[in-house]
């Protein structure tokens, strides 16, 4: 039995047919079904205007921001296997990742640079949307969701900044939280709750860890879903 025959047999099994409901034949019906019957791809319409495929219409900035979010999720989850949010274990785990764990340094580099790139790409995406006027009705609300996602990107990056527990991390967070403290009325209380105390210590590290790994990514995922859904519902990319 050659490979092609084997493939035909596998594809014909009920198990395979239960997962992929249509054959991969180069017909428009199958191409439509590829998008239509896939939970991930059906964020797209079955057909798109040929014009919107042009690179200069979007420069891929939004899509690449999302790609970075996915890359950050994967590398971040892997890093969590070796990280303990405690003092001074957090810093020791950084050293361990860097010098002991196989590919540990590479994963940390990927996570770090992808985080910087994401902030940059989200900002550029916002500028692109502004200059192409893509925020005008009926997409006003999606622009607001986008602004919230920009803020979330900054917060995600900022909360992650404390986790290595090195000098860079500690003093960047000191300056940042004292800026928040300057806010009238709620500032000092907000800082106390964010740090879980008056000084940046163990409580603050655990709080930033939970925010960085659970709360903010979940919030971003929900807003991303809304953002993509609205792109689809408010009409595709059709700049002037």
């Amino acid at each position: 039995m050659n490979v092609l025959e084997l493939k035909e047999r596998v594809v014909a099994t009920p198990v395979w047919r239960s997962i992929f409901r249509h054959r991969y034949l180069d017909s428009n019906r199958n191409r439509a079904l590829t998008v239509f019957s896939n939970v991930f791809l059906h964020i797209h319409p079955v057909k798109v205007p040929e014009k919107s495929l042009r690179l200069r219409h979007t420069m891929c900035l939004g899509g690449l921001s999302f790609a970075l979010f996915l890359a950050l999720t994967v590398t971040g989850v892997l890093l969590m296997f070796y990280y303990r949010p405690a003092i001074p274990q957090a810093y020791r785990d950084m050293k361990e990742l860097e010098f002991v764990v196989t590919s540990g340094a590479l994963l940390r580099n990927l996570h770090r640079w992808a985080a910087h790139a994401m902030v940059l790409f989200v900002f550029l995406h916002m500028a692109r949307v502004f200059y192409s006027g893509a925020y005008r009705p009926p997409r006003e609300f999606n622009w607001v969701v986008g602004v919230l996602l920009l803020i979330l990107s900054l917060l995600l990056s900022y909360t992650g900044y404390l986790l290595p527990w090195d000098q860079l991390a500690f003093w960047a967070i000191t300056v940042g939280t004292n800026m928040a403290e300057a806010a009238p009325l709620i500032g000092p209380k907000f800082k106390f709750l964010l740090l879980g105390g008056n000084v940046i210590g163990e409580n603050a590290l655990v709080r930033f860890y939970v925010l960085h790994c659970v709360v903010l990514p979940l919030a971003a995922a929900v807003l991303l879903a809304v953002h993509f859904w609205r792109v689809r519902k408010d009409g595709g990319v059709r700049p002037l």
Binding site: K47, V48, L53
Partner: peptide, 13 residues
Amino acid sequence: EKLVMTFPHLIVR
């Protein structure tokens, strides 16, 4: 407008 199939044109890009 001229429309094209999302798969493969958009997905591949």
